[in-house]
Nucleic acid binder design. Structure first.
Lengths: 235, 235
DNA sequence: CGCGCGATTGATTCGGCTCAATAACTGTGG
DNA sequence: CCACAGTTATTGAGCCGAATCAATCGCGCG
């Protein structure tokens, strides 16, 4: 399933410009290049498991990933997504704690593994990169706080509406306005924090209300302002 | 209400050894000392407001603080607490975003304000301090993820039980095992993400079940293992 | 062509919220 | 030091959002 591939070179990697690595010097780039290893993952493969230790980070060169925790009834909670240019595993690495979440691919994905020593070297020697990491972490922390408040206070209907808008923003749309990620109803439920059936019913409501169009796992938002109103977003 | 006080010197501040500043050099300490300003806050005062910009961080030299967001029905959601030795405001500062939460004192509190320039200097010049910040942020991020999963999946009874255990761990107990923080029923509800009445009913249940003892705002956990079981915690 | 998983729909249940009324408590000023 | 006003806590009743349970459907694939 997982197989080593011809390593994509960072300097030709289309994902780099969007990543925390965008401002590395040529020397640093080739240093990273030399230390990393790249692998291909099929759809649905687990990259790492919650609770384990990790000794580096993964950079997504192509593909999409979900990060999730398993609650004690065995139910999955999706915490965040990663796509081209994003890194995963840095939280556990930097906190020196076990992984707080598992990661699995949502489609065919290419990942580069960058060892801890390499990351620490960049942090220590490149203030700009270091600051990018601080910024990334603190941004994520702010996002997490927002999610906490919404989970605690908003009804499912509003949360689902917002989730759709966030998915659209995160993964963008193709020429037909279809959100570029394919999730099962259950996975959507596991983002929103609700039951699969509730997602199904509400999606069908949104459809009736002409807010979205759905075809299998393809979702298109046809009335963004109205859906935003349903989501009850002000900020 | 807020009045400038004789600045506590960092090198005699009892809170320092527990803080991210614990390993600064004497020179760095006196540098921080020179740049900071200290203030006293009465109980219930707001330190900063969600949405504003901040130009430094606050270090708690004495007292207790709640950080919270206001949801769009005007309901408060408590995101975290800060006590002696903790810093607040660093998330917004480092992400260069507006404050994601407001902060208010839970009791009489002394705070030192450390300007942004000073913090950035420490980050740039003291790798050890820098690493402490990275570690702090990534630890917080892990905690936030845990909260998300629990909010999404656990019933109120379990969340309240866990909240009590966390409060005990965070604020410790006095010689009578009473948790050292005084919160209103409403504030507890705003941590758990539930209605005030639900907290009242469940606290009274826990009392009947001999898990806790309650007297006004004083809470004592009398059976930690049993309450832990109620909280349904495994990890 | 049938198996099996994911999606859908309906019926029912229930946790937890809201609303309302009362009680206890806190601080304040006379 | 007490009475009053304004919170905060408590308790009860009723309702509703959303979960669960059950059955069926649809399809992708071997």
């Amino acid at each position: 399933m997982k197989k080593r591939v011809e390593p994509t070179h960072c300097d030709t990697c289309g994902a780099r410009e969007k990543s925390v690595f965008c401002s590395l010097s040529p020397d640093e780039i080739s240093d990273v290049d030399a230390s990393k290893s790249c692998n291909f993952y099929a759809k649905g493969q687990v990259i790492f498991h919650e609770g384990n230790r990790i000794n580096g980070i993964y950079c997504v060169s192509k593909g999409k990933i979900k990060l999730f925790q398993i609650g004690n009834e065995g139910k999955e909670q999706i915490i965040r997504f990663a796509k081209e240019g994003d890194i995963i595993g840095y939280r556990a690495l930097l906190s020196e704690e076990p992984l707080s979440a598992s990661a699995a691919t949502l489609e065919e994905t290419s990942l580069c593994f960058i060892p801890k020593s390499q990351l620490l070297k960049l942090i220590a020697n490149n203030p700009n990169f270091n600051f990018k990491m601080l910024k990334l972490l603190s941004h994520e922390l702010g996002e997490a706080a927002k999610v906490i408040t919404e989970l605690a206070q908003k009804p499912v209907r509003e949360r689902l509406a917002e989730t759709l808008l966030i998915l659209r923003q995160t993964f963008e749309t193709d020429e037909n306005q279809v959100i570029q990620v394919k999730l099962s109803r259950e996975e959507i439920a596991n983002i929103v924090g609700t039951a699969t059936e509730s997602v199904i019913r509400l999606l069908s409501d949104f459809k009736k209300e002409k807010l979205i169009e759905v075809e299998g796992r393809s979702i298109k938002i046809v009335n963004i302002p109205a859906l935003t109103r349903v989501a009850n977003i002000f900020e």
